[in-house]
């Protein structure tokens, strides 16, 4: 900082120092960006090194084995991998439409005096620490699921042939579905507030022109506003998905922590982050710790893949829009 100022002063005196100052400024900002890269690569390498004993011992079998047995020291990542993906999928299926709905309501149809209170409420929801969601989920939401929601689901959806296998079993209250719902609650505010911000960037000229042509509200939203902000929406959604994939505390409370792949979404399961949070402190054997780090590595790769896929989708969309 002081260097840059120094450079400026020098510049004023000699006339050529301005370029020096620019160079220093560039160096400083580049350094800041390089730190991020260095951290990212450092995390990747240390995860890989830590996971190596497990990956070498179990090979590719690590990714397709359901069994997780600390006694015989046979570990497989399939159950937590499955739980992570299923809970995030449930969360996204619910949170994306709800979040978008909130954002459209707030920017398009909400009476003006209500906009601020609802907006603030959503931001407050985003600020609640995840441990609070976990405790609330275990003590309030899970009993409600167990006594009201799950029995209803089992007797209705569970009886439908074809998809019934997804909704059977005893109502434990906690499990994949409960975790998915809690995750949905946690990421709705993310999606809603990013979507609201980007909807506000749509020029009112566009909107007014569309209405002027006699389009209905539904048509304006569907064909004008959402296409206009599509890339930002995808970005916000992917960030929310990233949070859902990695969420630890809240999920640990309500997932049931069972290293199994149940066919029913009402059954207990586990996720990658929940398994690590549960078992890391007491994992004594080298291969046990290494397997947990390998789980972390898998999560890192998934998150990376999700973000890359989002980038790819954006590029495709832009190309399509260009044509």
């Amino acid at each position: 900082m002081s260097l840059a100022i120094e450079g400026n002063r020098h510049g004023r005196a000699s006339g050529s120092g301005g370029i020096d100052a620019d160079r220093i400024f560039h160096g400083v900002t580049f350094g800041a960006a390089a730190i991020v890269l260095a951290v990212l690569i450092g995390v990747f390498i240390s995860l890989l090194v830590g996971a190596w004993p497990a990956l070498r011992t179990f090979g590719l079998g690590f990714f397709v084995t359901e069994s997780w047995n600390p006694v015989t020291e046979k570990f497989g990542a399939l159950a937590p991998l499955y739980g992570t993906l299923v809970t995030s999928l449930i969360a996204m299926l619910i949170a994306v439409p709800v979040g978008l709905g909130i954002a459209i309501f707030l920017t398009e149809t909400c009476p003006r005096p209500l906009r601020r209170p609802i907006g603030i409420a959503i931001e407050l929801l985003a600020g609640i620490p995840s441990i609070i969601y976990g405790i609330w989920g275990l003590f309030v939401f899970a009993p409600f699921m167990q006594t009201v929601v799950q029995p209803a689901i089992i007797s209705t959806l569970g009886a439908i042939p074809g998809i019934g296998f997804l909704f059977f079993g005893p109502p434990y209250g906690i499990g994949l579905l409960t975790s998915g719902l809690i995750l949905a609650m946690m990421i709705v505010p993310f999606i809603a507030s990013t979507a609201r911000e980007v909807f506000l960037t749509v020029p009112s000229v566009l909107r007014e022109a569309a209405f002027g042509m006699g389009m209905t509200r539904w048509e304006v939203n569907r064909s004008i506003i959402i296409p206009y902000v599509r890339s930002a929406l995808v970005g916000g959604t992917m960030l929310a998905l990233g949070r859902a994939l990695g969420e630890t505390m809240a999920v640990t409370f309500v997932i049931g922590n069972a290293h199994r792949i149940p066919s029913s979404i009402l059954s207990p399961g586990t996720t990658i982050s929940a398994a690590i949070a549960n078992e890391f402190t007491e994992a004594t054997a080298g291969i046990y710790t290494s397997s947990l780090i390998a789980l972390g590595f898998v999560l890192f790769v998934i998150t990376f893949a999700v973000l890359s896929a989002a980038q790819l989708m954006l590029r495709q969309m832009k190309k399509k829009a260009g044509e």
Binding site: W68, P70, V71, T72, I174, N257, A258, T270, A277, N278
Partner: peptide, 17 residues
């Protein structure tokens, strides 16, 4: 079938922290 450890592969049930 299950064995002894600080955590084991439980045949049934739910886990709590």
């Amino acid at each position: 079938e299950v064995g002894v450890n600080t955590s084991v592969e439980w045949p049934v049930g739910v886990g709590a922290k």
